[in-house]
């Protein structure tokens, strides 16, 4: 269960505090429910995801994680000067998998299909290779809730198909909170939806209703 309680967020800028991105967001995500965040660009979807994953913190309000939540997957968290393998090792160790490090690494290398590039610095990767690595990482650990910011949009068509299937198996026994710009992906993975608009969050038990509410506000 994840409890988001009256979360306000604004970023620090060069000229002091910026304008409010989120203002008073409240919702509770029950166990094993998959939720999609919907909203226009800049609405604060990724911001909210990062805060749920604990990579950033609310300016006001609180977020309570009563289960094992992943890091916000799909953006950041990789060090450019280190190789894919070294980055993967770091993430494994941080999550307490020193003992079965070799297995996890083999899995990540195999799944991400990076081959020899796994031992090249991340800074030499294409964006597709980066997201494939991130995808491999995201599946290598057991969480109660996975947080995905467009991880499913990784790579070419063939990889995306395989990735979607693997992700579905993993998330079928766990919860998922995701941002995706592709409606099909949201329908595929999520049951409930949260529509973020003007700094507020609106909860919908059915993802279809959330998409509809979002679309109604779009200019025809």
């Amino acid at each position: 269960m994840i409890i988001v309680n009256d979360v306000h967020k604004r970023y620090k800028t060069e000229h002091g505090a910026g304008k409010w991105v989120l203002q008073g967001v409240n919702f509770t995500i029950p166990q094993n429910l998959s939720v999609g965040l919907i909203g226009k660009n800049g609405a604060g979807k990724s911001t909210l995801l990062r805060m749920i994953g604990g990579a950033d913190h609310p300016t006001k309000g609180s977020i309570e994680r009563r289960c094992k939540v992943s890091w916000p997957m799909g953006q950041g968290g990789l060090e450019g000067t280190l190789t894919g393998r070294q980055n993967a090792k770091f993430v494994c160790r941080v999550h307490g998998h020193q003992a079965n490090l070799a297995d996890r690494l083999a899995f990540i290398q195999d799944f991400s299909e990076l081959g020899e590039a796994f031992d090249e610095p991340i800074s030499t990767y294409s964006s597709g290779m980066r997201s494939r690595l991130q995808f491999g990482l995201s599946l290598a650990f057991d969480f109660d809730v996975y947080i995905s910011d467009e991880v499913t949009a990784a790579g070419d068509a063939a990889f995306r198909k395989k990735a979607a299937e693997a992700f579905k198996t993993t998330t079928s026994r766990a919860g998922l909170i995701m941002v995706a710009h592709d409606e099909g992906t949201l329908r595929d993975f999520c049951q409930a939806g949260v529509w973020i608009d003007n700094g507020k969050a609106h909860w919908f038990d059915d993802i279809e209703d959330a998409l509809k509410a979002y679309k109604d506000t779009l200019p025809k």
Binding site: A55, Q75, G76, G77
Partner: peptide
């Protein structure tokens, strides 16, 4: 970049 993992 490592603070993306909240354990760090």
């Amino acid at each position: 970049p490592m603070f993306a993992y909240r354990q760090v």
